[in-house]
C-alpha cells in the first residue's frame, strides 16, 4: 500500500430537477491506494453510487452534471479526457460490477461472449480468442463446467452464477480498479459470503484495488481495509475499519451502529433508530446536513458546515462535537 491509484478532489455531481439542483455528491475528496479495499457505506441517496458513476463518467447528462472537481486516476484527470479516451478506461483500467445481476447482462448474448467482450474491445482479441480467455475467467470465478456454461445464455444462470459472470467480465482486462456497487445485495447470505471472498482474493491476485459500495455495515467490517461513511453527499467519517467500528467519532456513524440489530447480542435491548428522515438533497439544511437528526447538535452545527478533520492517523471526521464526552 504505497502508491496512490486514485485521487478524488472536491467532487461535485448535481442533478437538475424541477425542485432545483439535487446535490447528490457535494464536495467529496478521498484517495485510494494500490491493492487496497475501500468500503463506502451510507443509506440510499447518500451519494455513494453517484460517486462511483462519476469516476466512470457514467452520469446521464442531462439531468446530471459533474460541476467541479478532479478525479485523478493513474496520473490523469478523468474529467479532462475526451469521450474516446474515456472509452479506453472503462472496462479496461476501471471495471464495475453492478448490483443487479439480472438486468446488467445482455439476455441475447451468450455468457462467454459477454465475458470476453472487454478483451475484444480493448485487446483486439478475436471472438474465438476472447471466448478462450472468457472460459479461463469463468473457471477462476469457480463456475462449474465453465466450457459448457460459456455457451449458455444469462437466463440459464442462477443469480449467484450471473454475479460470478459479472465479476469474470470485470477481471478480463486486469484492471487497476474494480468498483462493486452493492455487489451482493440481491443475493442470499451464503452466496454473498462466497462472492465477496472470491472478489477479494481475485483482486488481490491482480494487485488491483477494490471499492465496495454497500449499505451493509457488516460487509464493510469484514472485507474493507478502509471505510468512508457518507451522508447527504459528503463523507462524514473516514478511517480504517477498526477506527470506524471501534473508535467511532461521528454521530451519524454511531447512529447507524446503534440502529442495526447485532447477531452476537444476547440481551434484548431496544434498537436506537436515527429519528427523522434524510434531508431533501435539493434543499439541504444550512450548516451540517445531519444536525436536524443529530442528538449531539449544538447551535454551531446549524450555522457552519464542519470540515473533515483528522482525529489520529488516517481517521477523519466532519463534526464539531467530540462524541466521546
Amino acid at each position: 500500500m504505497s502508491e496512490k491509484l486514485l485521487e478524488i478532489r472536491d467532487l461535485h455531481t448535481y442533478f437538475w430537477t424541477e425542485n432545483g439542483w439535487v446535490k447528490a455528491v457535494n464536495g467529496v475528496s478521498f484517495d485510494l491506494w494500490k491493492g487496497e479495499t475501500l468500503g463506502i457505506v451510507g443509506e440510499s441517496g447518500c451519494g455513494k453510487s453517484v460517486t462511483a458513476l462519476s469516476i466512470l463518467r457514467l452520469i446521464p447528462n442531462p439531468p446530471g452534471r459533474i460541476l467541479k472537481g478532479e478525479i485523478i486516476f493513474e496520473g490523469r484527470d478523468l474529467l479532462q479526457l475526451s469521450d474516446e479516451e474515456m472509452l479506453r478506461v472503462r472496462g479496461n483500467r476501471i471495471s464495475m460490477v453492478f448490483q443487479e445481476p439480472m438486468t446488467s447482462l445482455n439476455p441475447v448474448l451468450t455468457v462467454g461472449r459477454q465475458v470476453g467482450e472487454p478483451l475484444e474491445l480493448h485487446r483486439g482479441a478475436s471472438i474465438k480468442g476472447a471466448l478462450r480467455v472468457a472460459i479461463e475467467l469463468l473457471k477462476k470465478t469457480r463456475i462449474p463446467a465453465a466450457e459448457n456454461r460459456a455457451t449458455d445464455y444469462p437466463h440459464q444462470f442462477s443469480g449467484g452464477m450471473r454475479q460470478r459472470a459479472m465479476i469474470a467480465m470485470g477481471l478480463g482486462c486486469e484492471p487497476g480498479l474494480i468498483i462493486a456497487d452493492e455487489p451482493t445485495t440481491a443475493l442470499d447470505v451464503t452466496v454473498q459470503a462466497q462472492l465477496l471472498d472470491l472478489m477479494k482474493s481475485l483482486t488481490r491476485d491482480l494487485s488491483a484495488s477494490l471499492m465496495i459500495i454497500t449499505h451493509n455495515l457488516g460487509v464493510v467490517a469484514r472485507y474493507a481495509d478502509r471505510v468512508n461513511v457518507m451522508y447527504a453527499g459528503k463523507i462524514v467519517e473516514t478511517g480504517t475499519a477498526h477506527d470506524i467500528y471501534e473508535d467511532t467519532r461521528h454521530p451519524y456513524t454511531l447512529g447507524l451502529m446503534a440502529s442495526v440489530p447485532k447477531i452476537d447480542q444476547d440481551v434484548k435491548a431496544k434498537l436506537v433508530p436515527i429519528e427523522g428522515q434524510p434531508p431533501d438533497l435539493a434543499h439541504l439544511p444550512e450548516g451540517c446536513s445531519f444536525y436536524p437528526r443529530c442528538t449531539f447538535a449544538v447551535e454551531k452545527c446549524s450555522k457552519e458546515v464542519p470540515p473533515l478533520e483528522t482525529v489520529g492517523g488516517i481517521h477523519q471526521k466532519a463534526c464539531w462535537i467530540d462524541v466521546r464526552k
Partner: peptide, 15 residues
C-alpha cells in the same frame, strides 16, 4: 451453522 457464520458482524475485531 453456515448461515450464522455467513453473516458478517459490524465489528472487524470480533468478526
Amino acid at each position: 451453522r453456515a448461515l450464522l457464520s455467513a453473516v458478517p458482524i459490524p465489528n472487524p475485531t470480533l468478526d
